[in-house]
Design a protein around this nucleic acid. Sequence first.
DNA 1: CGGTGTGAATCTATTCACAGCA
DNA 2: TGCTGTGAATAGATTCACACCG
Lengths: 204, 204
Amino acid sequence: MRIPEPTVERLLQLSRVLENLKAESISSSEIEAKTGWSSYTIRKDISFLQENLGEASGYNRLSLLAAIKRALALGTPWKFCVVGLGRLGSAYLNFPAFADEGFELVAGFDSSVNRIEILRSPVPLYPAYKMGEVISRFSIDLALLCVPAASAQGAADKLVASGIRGIINFAPVVLEVPERVMTSNVFVVDELRSMAAKLACLVD
Amino acid sequence: MRIPEPTVERLLQLSRVLENLKAESISSSEIEAKTGWSSYTIRKDISFLQENLGEASGYNRLSLLAAIKRALALGTPWKFCVVGLGRLGSAYLNFPAFADEGFELVAGFDSSVNRIEILRSPVPLYPAYKMGEVISRFSIDLALLCVPAASAQGAADKLVASGIRGIINFAPVVLEVPERVMTSNVFVVDELRSMAAKLACLVD
DNA sequence: CGGTGTGAATCTATTCACAGCA
DNA sequence: TGCTGTGAATAGATTCACACCG
């Protein structure tokens, strides 16, 4: 059965709550207290997993966690690359947290050959023109796009042509990509703007 | 009139599209081609601004931009601070883009006095125990929370006690805060997980 | 005609209410 | 009694259809 998108989002966050949980069991109202989502919503979300996980005491931490990971394919390994090795991009080359969650960083790309030669990296680095070849050779699924705003669309076009399935975009630019490619924007100024806008318009 | 939250989100992104637009006018179907949102949705979104902005040729770039900024309070200045001055947090101390968008960075905090003394920063730095005093003295609205996961909840508690209105959280932890405080999570591993989950469950 | 603006209809998500279980 | 699970009811967002305007 199809799981609605907001539910996917909450289940992902819920899995983090469960990972950091000390108790071995938790009820929907305890989750409500921790997250702010109503217990109804949480129970409905969990019911999409269709596993009848609830006990009289609530949900068992580990079985619920396992069920979420199974349903959301969090166990399966994904390959990703970093495009643009400036300050931000090169920081992610040395980030250990990815592997813990099943994401394997297999390549870094930059248009400056000079930069590639200078950088020390645990991951092979390639010049930008090899993107197509490398992405299809290693079947890379996802990309972190860390290039400056002015080059973002061009780099995204190359990624799309290489058969990438999703792009996490750090440049403050709305990318134009075909429908089959998923994008998600991570830009801190926009987070501030969005929060300010909500504080100003929604909460009054 | 209250603007629905998804509309706020799209208008924010639309303002970025308009800023990067060369043409002086754009129609709802051209916006659809650029963003993937249906032209109906876009027109409805714009209609929430209640300004009858449309011409026969579409929307005038600058008037639309101005109307969005007015409605979403993007002109008003906001003050924010950075909490946790490790690799990520200290990078944001030297980030010029914030000021362009009306966000004034007024303070940095870290629990290590040593680190505060060593760091060169264009913004005054304070030890963590001064958070309450500094935040209320300068009326700081928002915070970037860049501390390690283990200290995130503790730091968030201090921010809440200091009267912060919103927290942008970079630690992979779901924060427990009172309802009046807005939070938003920016964690790249979660972006990857979310994209992987959607690719695996929604798109089939 | 090309466009916008907007009530009505549809689709989606959340909330509720309550049955069922330990 | 306190919990889950879930159909039904409500609330909300998107899509549609069409009036209207230059």
